[in-house]
Design a protein around this nucleic acid. Structure first.
Lengths: 193, 193
DNA sequence: GTCTATAACCCGATAGAC
DNA sequence: GTCTATCGGGTTATAGAC
């Protein structure tokens, strides 16, 4: 093992991923990050001379990795092709509920805040969405969805997951994600016929 | 006409609706609001003694009214039952593009920021979503969707609209909303068979 | 009801010792 | 690389004249 204890840098990034997923970029203070990560101010600006925005950029990328991994695992473990998209919604409901709906998508809130305010963060958010669409699209192609349909359907699936997650968290209720699962089953069946 | 010129109070609320839809709650400063509304600080705290949060609450409600109206108009003007949900996605694409993707849902960003930070705003966001689901659900019932399906399908439709809007805005590209329209057509057809 | 001026506080960022 | 102390500016909110 190279890191029996994560470095201060890693702790800063990981703490920021959580904070961004809970409250977004604007509400997250540099002070709060350093306290959460048990890192002093000085380390922060040593590792991230670009300040808060540079750290958020790294956190968006790490958060995107995490979601991508969850998607890949869920999609490949699915019981049947028609269920694979629905399983993502159910997996999400499971993960979110475990934090009492506090932790959400690590990108969504920052994405909305960044539009028209921070081109850097906006682009990082767009990259994250793009990666997830590609991951879902690759899976759809694998299970036999026609090429012309993979990208539109993958985009819709991601949009539905993001939207249902938002409503579920605000309501503290898994129902919207269960509804999304049902609709994803319908859409998958339609695309596979 | 009762108001040839909107009152300072109305101007404050309306400006806040726009600012919340562009950048969310946390990034929006009281100073910025008063400048945008051409209202002095003093008026602000006279009309909203509860400060920024009380004003945001009023803005979320007014924003919810506006979206509800857009939904009702679009749904009732639809060319066919199967197209009505898809038309909402296309209407959204139209409206959003007109502001170069800057103005979005007046509730979404604040909703995500409010979870675990402001119960008041979180509840207002939940109320807004609830109203829109009810509006869509009522319409679905009207066009003949079975009672047991109206609410789940309405929830999914709203989630998909919200998610697709977010991705479209971050990408500054209507494609996700067009993809959503196509999927909403499939879902509507399935629910009407 | 409207306005200006300012108080009290918190923010991101930096300096400089170690 | 790590830490503390602090700066300058921006924040929300208030005081008090009009």
């Amino acid at each position: 093992m190279k890191r029996p204890q994560p470095s201060a840098r890693d702790r800063l990034v990981t703490s920021t991923v959580t904070l961004l997923s809970r409250q977004g970029y604007e509400a997250t203070g540099v002070k709060q990050i350093t306290v959460e990560a048990s890192a002093p101010m000085g380390s922060f600006y040593f590792h991230f001379p670009g300040g808060k925005e540079e750290l958020a950029l790294a956190a968006l990328r790490q958060g995107a990795d995490g979601v991508d991994m969850l998607l890949r695992e869920t999609l490949s473990a699915a019981t049947s092709p028609e269920e694979s998209l629905a399983d993502c919604a159910l997996a999400l409901a499971d993960v979110l509920k475990r934090s009492d709906w506090l932790d959400g998508c690590p990108v969504a809130a920052t994405a909305l805040e960044s539009i028209g305010r921070s081109p850097t963060l906006r682009e990082a958010a767009a990259d994250a969405f793009e990666r997830w669409v590609t991951t879902i699209g690759d899976h759809l192609r694998t299970i036999g969805v026609a090429d012309r349909q993979t990208r539109p359907l993958a985009t819709t699936a991601l949009a539905l997951l993001e939207g249902a997650e938002m409503i579920a968290r605000v309501r503290a209720d898994p129902e919207p994600l269960h509804d999304a699962a049902a609709s994803l089953r319908v859409l998958a069946r339609d695309a596979l016929r």
